[in-house]
Amino acid sequence: MADNKQNAEVMVSEVHKKIRAAFEAFDYESNNTVDVREIGTIIYSLGCFPSRADLHDFIAEVEEDHSGYIHMDKFLPAMTKVLLDHKFPPIPEDILLQAFEVLDKEKKGYLELEELTKYMTMEGEPFTQEEMDEMLTALADREKNVIYYRDLLSQLTIDTGM
Results as ranks from 00 to 15, higher is better:
133 D>T: 06
89 P>A: 13
43 I>G: 09
5 K>C: 11
134 E>L: 03
145 N>L: 06
16 H>R: 14
46 L>M: 07
28 Y>L: 03
118 K>Q: 05
63 E>I: 15
8 A>D: 09
129 Q>E: 05
17 K>F: 02
89 P>C: 08
161 G>L: 14
105 K>I: 11
60 A>Q: 12
129 Q>T: 00
143 E>K: 14
78 A>R: 14
101 E>H: 00
45 S>W: 04
131 E>P: 01
110 Y>H: 14
104 D>C: 08
128 T>V: 04
136 L>F: 11
83 L>Y: 07
128 T>F: 01
81 K>D: 07
44 Y>N: 14
18 K>A: 11
110 Y>G: 14
129 Q>F: 03
117 T>W: 06
130 E>F: 00
158 I>L: 05
116 L>F: 10
131 E>W: 02
74 K>L: 09
4 N>T: 15
74 K>Y: 08
134 E>T: 03
59 I>V: 13
147 I>V: 14
99 A>F: 00
58 F>Q: 00
132 M>D: 01
21 A>E: 11
145 N>C: 04
33 T>L: 05
66 H>P: 00
49 F>K: 13
114 E>H: 10
61 E>K: 10
36 V>A: 09
92 P>L: 06
112 E>K: 11
118 K>W: 15
51 S>G: 13
103 L>R: 02
52 R>T: 15
77 P>G: 08
50 P>S: 09
139 L>R: 02
134 E>N: 04
38 E>V: 15
94 D>Q: 13
73 D>Y: 02
13 S>H: 04
143 E>N: 14
145 N>R: 14
27 D>S: 07
11 M>F: 07
70 I>D: 00
132 M>P: 03
76 L>M: 14
93 E>G: 02
109 G>H: 06
156 L>R: 04
68 G>D: 03
76 L>K: 07
2 A>I: 08
12 V>E: 15
25 A>N: 09
48 C>L: 11
95 I>Y: 14
132 M>C: 07
57 D>H: 12
149 Y>P: 10
101 E>V: 01
36 V>C: 08
135 M>F: 02
156 L>T: 08
64 E>G: 03
62 V>A: 07
70 I>V: 15
123 E>M: 13
144 K>E: 14
99 A>P: 01
136 L>I: 12
18 K>T: 02
99 A>H: 02
160 T>E: 06
49 F>S: 13
36 V>K: 11
34 V>P: 04
81 K>F: 01
11 M>W: 04
41 T>G: 10
122 M>Y: 10
13 S>I: 02
121 T>D: 10
22 A>R: 06
9 E>G: 06
138 A>S: 02
86 H>W: 04
130 E>G: 00
112 E>S: 06
96 L>S: 05
118 K>P: 00
8 A>I: 10
26 F>H: 05
93 E>I: 09
